[in-house]
Write a protein that binds this DNA or RNA. Structure first.
Length: 856
RNA sequence: GCCAGAGUGGUGAAAUGGCAGACACAGCGGACUUAAAAUCCGCAGACGGGUCAUUCCGUCGUGGGGGUUCGAGUCCCCCCUCUGGCACCA
């Protein structure tokens, strides 16, 4: 019996050094006979703030799984690297004068150190960094493949220009008219930009979601973002203009109710069809609309605005003339930039028609039940006083040219109208997507340069693959120019290009790629990180792909995951990768919230003003009683928990265990440092049980045997479903039974327990494994197996209910059949009493669990 | 407004349609200690009854209301609240 202390720091340092020195987690490219498991963590951006407690949550989950899989005989690829290009380092650089390369290296070193302190089993020989020329060479190479396939193009487009950041942003990076990073205002401005044709892949990005093992929520978010809709394009003649306008509608069935048409302010035909009388008003309106930023558009979205063009269009089914308006509720970027307006059956058109006195013609009689449920009065709809967008039967919808929709349901009349239009050559079925092409250039310094040269003769060419990478030039002054011209325009020497063969002159592209570029393919580079001849070796790619498990935050639900899937599909089409999807299974860890406090008025109180007394939280200055609640960790609330502090106080194993014990991985959970003490206590007890209790080779008692095997089974099953919290609970139950002062501990139980706990608390368990007399690491020790036979018990307690109320608990033989159960149950005095004077009607038997006697 | 997810003790949570609250935190009581910390043992959904005390008994209880079922936290319908996402997308 030893009286050793559980010296957390010493033990954790010792085993981290051991793993590093022995390259315990180095992965071989191929392991014949072993199944592979590729487990990926989302690429961290190494910010100056260092790790927060949210990072280790996902990392711990994947690490536990990887350690478990190794013990189950898998060849496990578990890498880590850095998404190190990006705005924050550059802004910091502009503010402090420190070069982003310096900041980035410092931050990466800090992150690596913090991550290593948690004892994760990464193969550090595969570390990658997006800012490394050996890496971005291949990012540039992939761009060239996209370009050669016609998927990259330059366009003069109205973009989201953020003056504060001095760059444009993708639609996805703009939230409510403000930048996602930094929350700065964004305005619309036409600029020359690089675009990627992600829209070409819209259908496949949508379809292939089906086969993925992702949460329904994330799939749905991607579906919404892609925004597929099916409808029809319909041509309308413009009276006397010799022109026609094509509109897109999802409701061709409502064509008989179209009482006006709207063009978006940017629509190319507006100029041509506007009457002289209306010209001034229309051009003023268009001017006004063009000045609106996205922010204005969203904020002023309540009131509809618009102006009449003076032109009329012919409704192709009625032959009637309807006015053509210009209004900014129609967007040039979606559909055809023009709509037919059916105020009776579209809420936006209804609002607009009400405001401008345009007739409302009802052509669908609402389904009575549905209308009642929606609180809409059908009579109002029929009179054009209310809008109905639901189901019903068509009325007033027939013409002399053979189209008769009257009496049809919405669905059928959509089909009938489309067919009629198509037969006459004035319309056709059409599919549209909300997804837009991806704005791929940024006017910043700290990003991948485009491998593109603009030649003096006006042509543009890609840099030869052999000349990649195009290095990012070292610059002292990389501040935004403010004009929209990128900082690289100031890199005089770098800028000028002379063709080494022909001597032709050119100028390099000065835009850089967005941060997403590097993270679009890093999972491929991990497979073959030092390859100088290819982004990834095809044989290795085939062996490792797809990623079997990808864990990260839900904040990347659309941006990163959609872009990466797009690039992957392009590489698949070009034959460079073997799977059509990169990430087979995706799990999003829930955010970890900090404990916060608010006073009676609901005002947030920073942590340092909170006095935590035994009877509750109080305001340090006012003495007011405060209310505890969970809120996002933020600097202003001072409720940010730093992993370094937790590790220093309790150790990495406790940190890991607590993060997993808090609750289900995918749930949002509040951090509570007191909870760490609980798991730290559990680890301490584990240490003492193995080290201090006398080990015995005596066989386990049947009860011990049963609990041991039940624990192996529970932990194993829970790991397969990533239910880490309940696996830990089971181990706590185990230790509650096996630990005790000077209580003999069967060696078989001790060994199995240490192996079960090892993926969760690897440092402690390596130490215990050693103290049990083993040499070297347990990282590849076989995972304990359980025996179903040991789980069996001879007798089980069965609940006896009468009319659903518990009356007795009876020990019965395991597997007793219905008649035996019934007999034993009826013999119970309490049951007899409850049944007195009643006739048994029915007996429900659930073997080994309960018996319910129904009587009256 | 639309889409998705979630509402269970003081707290984090657990529960193949079968004894709600396992496991843990905080709390309370006790042991050890000169004392404290650490550790160990015990109590613990609410209300009521009963008892020296424990066992015990009854009623209520998984956001609210209905339903299906012998039996509902779990399945179905309606509503409320919260979180996340989208939002003039025709």
């Amino acid at each position: 019996m030893s009286t050793r202390e559980y010296d957390v720091t010493a033990i954790e340092k010792k085993w981290q050094a051991y793993w590093e020195a022995n390259k315990t987690f180095k992965v071989n490219d191929f392991e014949p006979g072993k199944p592979k498991f590729y487990c990926l963590d989302m690429f961290p951006y190494p910010s100056g703030a260092g790790l927060h407690v949210g990072h280790p949550e996902g990392y711990t989950a994947t690490d536990i799984l990887c350690r478990y899989k190794r013990m189950r005989g898998f060849n496990v690829l578990h890498p880590m690297g850095w998404d190190a290009f990006g705005l924050p380092a550059e802004q910091y650089a502009v503010e402090t004068g420190t070069h982003p390369a310096v900041t980035t290296e410092r931050n990466v070193n800090r992150f690596r150190e913090q991550i290593k302190a948690l004892g994760f089993s990464y193969d550090w020989d595969r570390e990658v960094n997006t800012t490394d020329p050996g890496y971005y060479r291949w990012t540039q190479w992939i761009f060239e493949q996209l370009h050669k396939k016609g998927l990259a193009y330059v366009a003069e487009v109205p973009v989201n220009w953020c003056p504060a950041l001095g760059t444009v942003l993708a639609n996805e990076e703009v939230i409510d008219g403000r930048s996602e990073r930094g929350n700065h205002p964004v305005i619309r401005k036409p600029m020359r930009q690089w675009m990627l044709r992600i829209t070409e892949y819209a259908e496949r990005l949508l379809e292939d979601l089906e086969g993925l093992d992702w949460s329904e929520g994330i799939k749905e978010m991607q579906r919404n973002w892609i925004g597929k809709s099916e409808g029809a394009e319909v041509d309308f003649e413009i009276v006397g203009a010799g022109a026609q306008v094509t509109v897109y509608t999802t409701r061709p069935d409502t064509l008989f109710g179209a009482t006006y048409m709207v063009l978006s302010p940017e629509h190319p035909l507006v100029e041509r069809i506007t009457s002289d009388a209306q010209r001034a008003a229309v051009s003023a309106y268009r001017d006004e609309a063009s000045k609106k930023s996205d922010l204005d558009r969203t904020e002023l979205s309540t009131e509809k605005t618009g102006v009449f063009t003076g032109a009329y269009a012919v409704n192709p089914v009625t032959g009637g003339q309807i006015p053509v308006w210009v209004a900014d509720y129609v967007l040039i970027s979606y559909g055809t930039g023009a709509i037919m307006a059916v105020p009776a059956h579209d809420t936006r058109d209804f609002e607009f028609a009400q405001k401008f006195g345009i007739p409302v013609v009802c052509i669908i009689e609402p389904d009575a039940a549905e209308a009642a449920a929606a609180g809409v009065c059908p009579a109002d709809v029929l009179q054009g006083k209310a809008c109905w967008t639901g189901n019903g039967r068509l009325i007033r919808s027939a013409n002399a040219q053979g189209l008769d929709l009257n009496g049809l349901e919405v669905r059928d009349s959509k089909r009938a109208t489309t067919a009629w239009l198509q037969a006459r050559g004035i319309g056709k079925a059409a599919v549209k997507y909300k997804l837009r092409d991806w704005l791929f250039s940024r006017q910043r310094y700290w990003g991948e340069p485009f491998p593109v040269v603009h030649m003096a003769d006006g042509t543009m060419r890609l840099v030869d693959e052999g000349d990649l990478p195009v290095m990012l030039p070292a610059m002292e002054d990389f501040k935004p120019t403010g004009t929209g011209e990128p900082p690289l325009a100031k890199a005089a020497e770098w800028l000028d290009y002379t063709d080494p063969r022909t001597g032709e002159k050119g100028r390099r592209e000065t835009n850089t790629m967005p941060q997403w570029a590097g993270s679009c393919w890093y999972y491929l580079r991990y497979i073959d990180p030092r390859n100088e001849h290819a982004a990834v070796d095809p044989a290795k790619e085939k062996y490792w792909m797809p990623v079997d498990l990808y864990v990260g935050g839900a904040e990347h639900a659309v941006l990163h995951l959609l872009y990466a899937r797009f690039w992957h599909k392009v590489l698949f089409d070009l034959g460079y990768v073997s799977t059509k999807e990169p990430f087979q299974k995706l799990v999003n860890q829930g955010m970890i919230l900090g404990l916060s406090y608010k006073d009676g008025r609901g005002a947030l109180v920073p942590m340092e003003l909170v006095d935590l007394r035994p009877d509750g939280p109080f305001h340090r200055e006012t003495g007011e009683r405060l209310v505890e609640f969970a809120a996002k960790m933020s600097k202003s609330l001072k409720n940010v928990v730093n992993p370094d502090d937790v590790i220093r106080e309790y150790g990495a194993d406790s940190m890991r265990l607590y993060e997993m014990f808090m609750g289900p991985l995918e749930a949002v959970k509040p951090w509570n440092t007191q909870g760490v003490e609980g798991v730290a206590r559990f680890l301490k007890r584990s240490f003492r049980m193995v080290v201090e209790q006398p080990l015995t080779d005596d066989p386990l008692t049947p009860e011990q045997q049963r609990l041991l095997h039940a624990t192996i089974k529970k932990v194993t099953d829970d790991l397969e479903t990533m239910s880490f919290n309940t696996a830990i609970s089971q181990m706590m139950i185990f230790i509650n039974a096996f630990s005790g002062h000077a209580k003999p501990l069967p060696r078989a139980a001790a060994e199995a327990y240490v192996l079960l706990l090892a993926p969760f608390a690897p440092h402690l368990c390596e130490e215990l494994w050693e103290s049990l007399g083993h040499v070297g690491t347990l990282a590849y020790a076989p995972w304990p197996a359980y025996d179903e036979a040991c789980l069996k018990v001879d007798e089980v307690e069965v609940l006896v209910q009468v009319l659903g109320k518990p009356k007795a608990r009876v020990m019965m033989p395991n597997g007793a059949d219905e008649s035996v159960m019934k007999e034993l149950a009826l013999a119970q005095p309490a049951v007899q009493e409850a049944l007195s004077g009643k006739a048994v009607r029915k007996v429900i038997c659930v073997p080994n669990r309960l018996i319910n006697i129904v009587a009256n």
